[in-house]
Amino acid sequence: MTQPTPPFQNDAVKNTFAGFSETVRPGLLELRRLIFDVAETENVGRIEETLKWGQPAYLTPESKSGTTLRLGVPKAGGYALFVHCQTTIIPDARAVFADAFTYDGNRAVLFNAQSEIAIAPLALLIAQALTYHRRNKKGPR
């Protein structure tokens, strides 16, 4: 497997991507690249790439502006972008984008290897996740 852009931050994540099947790895790498691209345009600071529950996870540790995004392979097949299920990210995306995505409840957007990713709406969904805490910060009471 060639080194993606940006390079993996640690061997555990690199090995996890290497373990994904050839069918889903390209799509997962595309999602990964999009997370880093959106993070740069949204000025959320450094993205930390680590593993959570054995899946590549993306956090905003310095700004703490966002909620964690994870990439993985759901039991039903294909691949997915997971968000924290207690956020409003998926319900908000469903309200705005309706049928642009296939959803798994309030926790994920599902993809299959044969379909193209709808980049523009997905970039907006990722931006919502990476800025979730910044946008939902409650003021003084």
Rank of each mutant, 00 (worst) to 15 (best):
M1L: 08
M1C: 10
M1R: 08
P6V: 02
Q9S: 14
N10C: 03
D11I: 06
D11K: 15
D11N: 13
A12H: 10
V13Y: 07
K14A: 14
N15H: 15
T16M: 12
T16C: 12
T16V: 11
T16P: 03
A18D: 11
E22Y: 13
T23K: 13
R25V: 07
L28D: 13
L31Y: 07
R33F: 13
L34V: 01
F36L: 12
F36P: 05
D37E: 13
A39M: 01
E42W: 03
N43V: 14
V44P: 03
V44C: 06
V44S: 02
G45F: 01
G54W: 04
Q55F: 07
Q55D: 15
Q55T: 13
Q55M: 14
A57Q: 07
Y58G: 12
L59S: 08
T60D: 03
T60R: 01
E62W: 05
S63H: 04
S63A: 07
K64L: 12
G66C: 04
T67Y: 12
L71G: 08
G72Q: 15
V73P: 10
V73Q: 07
G77D: 07
G78V: 10
A80P: 00
A80R: 06
A80S: 09
L81W: 02
L81G: 11
F82K: 02
F82Q: 15
V83S: 06
H84D: 09
Q86M: 14
Q86C: 06
T87I: 05
T87Y: 05
I90C: 00
P91T: 08
A93L: 11
A93E: 07
R94K: 05
V96I: 11
D99M: 01
G105H: 06
N106H: 10
R107L: 04
A108I: 11
A108Y: 09
V109M: 05
F111W: 03
N112S: 15
Q114A: 14
Q114G: 13
S115A: 12
E116M: 10
I117M: 03
P121R: 11
P121F: 07
A123K: 03
A123I: 08
L125T: 08
L125E: 03
A127W: 06
A127Q: 09
T131L: 14
Y132W: 10
Y132G: 13
K137P: 10
K138F: 11
G139M: 13
R141V: 04
